[in-house]
Design a protein around this nucleic acid. Structure first.
Lengths: 120, 120
DNA sequence: CACTTACGTAAGAAGGTGCTTACATGGTGG
DNA sequence: CCACCATGTAAGCACCTTCTTACGTAAGTG
């Protein structure tokens, strides 16, 4: 029973849609466990357990204030995960003369994002 | 039994150190299953199964050429995962002046505490 | 043609994950 | 002080993961 590394725990945490949704909710403001659990079709203990996973992964910090638990985002691990992915992409794009195609793909994606207005 | 979404599958695939190592090896050149499996302390079928996971997640493409299976990286899904993380980070940093808010939270802890009291 | 090589799949064991309900803890408020 | 509230932990269940060995298949090799 070996403790998994930080990056594995982070990606494993993000592999669950409920946990990703928790992260998206916390990206704008910190919330209590009760606030969060109202949005999910599961019991409050289940949400608390999801928060345990996020906390152990270093993605969320819980600050107990009296009766309530204030959950907020911790971006350092998120940065680490993003950095790992960026590293792979960097070496990939360096590798080929297919730079043209890649840029074309990327531009299309960015156009999609603009269209959908994903940014609030 | 619902098929999990693309992003969940991608993050789940990246949650395993062996699979992340496979990705890093493929980022510079495509390799056969045999080439890859030499680097891991597990059987070849195990590596093949890891490749199944990566393939279903859209992170790897296997191109069977005669007797050999050429494994190469597919960056579109990797881009998607990076984009999701970037989105969260963007909103987080946009949200406020980081230090300012943090200090304000700490200093007005008791005031916040009272405010929250009348919210069920 | 046999014979080996590269690969994939099947079945099963061992352990992990994600939920549930029940319960314990401790702050809050009449 | 006593009831209530938000929360976390425990135990148990169903399912999923990750490995193993055994086997199947098609392509290369003598």
């Amino acid at each position: 029973m070996v403790a998994p590394d930080r990056l594995s725990m982070a990606f494993a945490a993000l592999a669950d849609p409920t946990r990703r949704d928790i992260v998206t909710r916390l990206r704008t403001k910190s919330l209590t466990v009760g606030d969060l659990s109202e949005h999910y079709p599961m019991s409050r203990p289940a949400v608390s357990q999801h928060l345990n996973v996020l906390e152990k992964a270093g993605l969320v910090v819980r600050d107990r204030r009296g009766q309530w638990s204030d959950c907020s985002l911790a971006t350092a691990t998120l940065d680490e995960a993003a950095a790992w992915i960026e590293q792979q992409r960097a070496d990939w794009t360096e590798r080929f003369d297919l730079l043209d195609e890649h840029l074309r793909n990327r531009r299309t994606r960015e156009a999609d994002y603009q269209e959908r207005g994903d940014h609030p």
